[in-house]
């Protein structure tokens, strides 16, 4: 296996007054998509922050082979700055990296076009729907050409139609990128996980430790209209069962 883009090896994190998470072991290969699922409070967000280099483990190691500014992060809410328009929001990472304003704005416009908001460059966040704001956040994460893209339940708050379209668009954007970024995303939704990810990592409720690593069928990029394919439905069922088994055995383990 080639050098991973990011790896957690025996990483533990002390949670202030709530015990500790870990040890966490997770190796993310370049260009792959990994879904993280687990109960609330299983440390999914902490795992993402470790992978992003935003937080240091209290023990163990985090290795990242990501260039500076080449990590994209999409949070649970769009977290746009309300005083700036869509284009300025997307240009922010480039401007923080010291790119010239004109170049940053141009690349931001291109990134917004790629997520289907090429006609809303000067819209303020308050003028955008939840789905559109999330697209802006996605464009902001993609504008630097990230090697590692981290998504913390970005679609959880959206209605199902908007959510389906965003997932399909995200998959298309990932497939079209060259080189493709590695994507780690947190989700509760099996269909979403099966549609996007090559493997699904189940995290243990109390410690956040990965307890199962389930592959999904059909190597990505997934064909168009894959959702209509019986193979997809089959994969969702199989994965849901495996997920349930993994979570049940984990509950049994915890009880024992």
């Amino acid at each position: 296996m080639a050098e991973p883009i990011a790896a957690l090896r025996g990483a533990t994190v002390d949670l202030a007054g709530r015990g500790a998470l870990g040890p966490l072991d997770l190796i993310v290969a370049r260009g792959e998509i990994v879904a993280l699922v687990g109960a609330s409070g299983a440390g999914k967000s902490t795992t993402l922050r470790l992978l992003a280099g935003l937080q240091s483990p209290s023990a163990g190691t985090v290795t990242r082979a990501v260039g500076p500014g080449r990590t994209g992060f999409v949070f649970q809410s769009p977290t746009l700055t309300p005083w700036a328009d869509a284009q300025a929001n997307v240009a922010l990472p480039l401007e923080l990296a010291g790119r010239p304003r004109a170049e940053a704005r141009e690349r931001a416009a291109a990134a917004l076009s790629a997520v289907g908001l090429g006609d809303r460059l000067d819209a303020r966040p308050s003028e955008l729907s939840g789905g559109m704001a999330m697209r802006v956040a996605l464009a902001r994460a993609l504008v630097t050409g990230p090697e590692l893209l981290l998504l913390d339940e970005p679609f959880a708050a959206l209605d199902s139609v908007t959510r389906r379209r965003l997932i399909e668009d995200l998959h298309a954007l990932w497939a079209a990128a060259d080189p493709r970024p590695a994507v780690v995303f947190v989700t509760h939704d099996v269909e979403e996980a099966v549609y996007l990810a090559q493997r699904i990592v189940v995290l243990e409720a109390a410690t956040g430790r990965p307890v199962a690593d389930l592959p999904t069928p059909c190597a990505p990029p997934r064909p168009a209209r894959w959702r209509a394919d019986p193979a997809y439905r089959q994969a969702v069922e199989t994965t849901a069962e495996a997920l349930e088994a993994a979570m049940t055995s984990q509950t049994a383990e915890t009880a024992a």
Partner: peptide, 26 residues
């Protein structure tokens, strides 16, 4: 300021001045 926005500024290595001017003052 939104803690996630603060994290975003960490992620892209913002200088203290950039953080003040582009996030905290607004």
């Amino acid at each position: 300021a939104d803690p996630d926005l603060e994290r975003l500024f960490d992620l892209y290595g913002a200088t203290p001045l950039q953080r003040l001017w582009r996030l905290r003052l607004p």
